[in-house]
């Protein structure tokens, strides 16, 4: 157990190390400066992966760890994007204060949505959250607030501070979003491994059983939706900083479905799985687009069906299930080989 923990820690550190040197490795292989050309393009690709990874992980806390299916998770992502955009562009706030406001607003919003919708469960909860997200989607599109939100055109040209500009300071933005993803992962892991996380998992297994053990399950579901909402809102804020805009699509159903796909492809209830799912969706989408042009979503649909058929628990879930069997098989084969060489 201890060995396995150490090896997974080691694998994580290797991955982080790889991501830290990645821009310079691309620069070395292409012969182009790290701040421009192909290295800059790939930094942009991974920046989007890091942001989506946090968003997917936030969905996993809700669905994978607490068993709450939401069709309106885009609500938090989109609100985060619009909040930081409006505060930077119209209120002239500094970045730190704006990010703090994103957190505070996400907490308030999660608590309100949770209190109003968590009294129902299953598909009813999903429908209520969908209604909330659609309400905010319509608000973002409404022409009455055009001067604040940009209505259907979205909030354009968000003034991102020069030191973190995704266009001129791409490498710095890359490291900031990498750090953001790592910090969010460590925080999420802390939550799911805590006694509160155990109660969340108990609710996922059987809410009535958790109640008869003395747990006020609504409180724990509120904690889950708040943690998840804050993470999603911060991901949305970074998404707005990256794109320099926030448009109504970030509040749309498509954004929630994206989170759902990333979580299912990567592996529900594993944190690292949805992060991997974000990478798969972003990079696979890019390569399919390069090779097959505009018909790539159709092919992606086929790939998605194949993944669900052959990896029913997602990439990480299936790996965990089979790794024990594979490990035993390799041990047995190694022993057979050793026996063969000792006594041919």
């Amino acid at each position: 157990m201890r060995d396995r923990f150490t090896s997974s820690q080691w694998a994580g550190l290797t991955l982080i190390g790889g991501l830290i040197i990645f821009p310079f490795v691309v620069s070395l292989f292409t012969g182009q400066p790290v701040e421009s050309g192909v290295p800059k393009f790939w930094q942009g690709m991974l920046i989007q992966v890091f942001i989506l990874a946090v968003f997917a992980m936030s969905y996993d806390i809700l669905m994978g760890y607490t068993g709450i299916l939401s069709f309106g998770h885009a609500l938090f992502f989109g609100t985060g994007a619009y909040t930081i955009g409006i505060l930077l562009k119209h209120a002239g706030w500094d970045l730190g204060s704006a990010l703090l406001a994103v957190i505070v607003i996400a907490i308030i919003q999660s608590l309100i949505v949770g209190l109003l919708s968590l009294r129902v469960s299953g598909v009813y909860f999903a429908m209520v959250t969908l209604a909330f997200a659609q309400m905010f989607f319509l608000l973002a599109e409404a022409t009455d607030f055009r001067q604040w939100t940009g209505a259907e055109d979205g909030l354009q040209s968000i003034p991102v501070p020069a030191w973190i500009s995704p266009t001129t300071e791409r490498l710095r933005f890359y490291y900031v979003t990498l750090a953001f993803a790592i910090i969010m992962y460590l925080l999420a892991r802390q939550v799911v491994n805590s006694p509160t996380g155990r109660v969340m998992m108990a609710i996922r297994d059987n809410e009535t059983r958790a109640k008869v053990l003395g747990y006020h399950t609504l409180t724990f579901k509120l904690i889950a939706i708040t943690v998840s909402g804050v993470m999603a809102a911060l991901a949305g804020a970074f998404n707005a900083l990256w794109n320099l805009n926030a448009n109504p699509a970030v509040l749309g159903v498509g954004t929630t479905i994206n989170a759902l796909l990333m979580t299912i492809i990567g592996g529900v209830g594993s944190l690292i799985g949805p992060m991997l799912g974000a990478g798969v969706i972003q990079l696979l989408g890019y390569w399919l687009n390069v090779f097959f042009g505009p018909s790539w979503p159709l092919l992606f649909g086929i790939v998605y069906i194949l993944i669900v058929l052959f990896l029913p628990y997602g990439i990480v879930g299936t790996w965990r299930l089979r790794s024990a069997g594979w490990l035993a098989m390799w041990r047995e084969r190694s022993r057979s080989l050793i026996r063969f060489f000792n006594h041919p």
């Binding site: 155990r198 998992m201 108990a202 996922r204 297994d205 059987n206 009535t208 059983r209 109640k211 008869v212 053990l213 003395g214 747990y215 006020h216 399950t217």
Partner: peptide, 28 residues
């Protein structure tokens, strides 16, 4: 009173059909 309050008053309930949390360890 809701179930969680009754439990907190010192009532333990062992439902039928071996009502454990299957994904959690014995310790958890």
């Amino acid at each position: 009173r809701p179930a969680y309050e009754i439990a907190q008053l010192g009532v333990g309930y062992v439902p039928e059909h071996r009502a454990i949390f299957r994904d959690l360890t014995v310790e958890e």
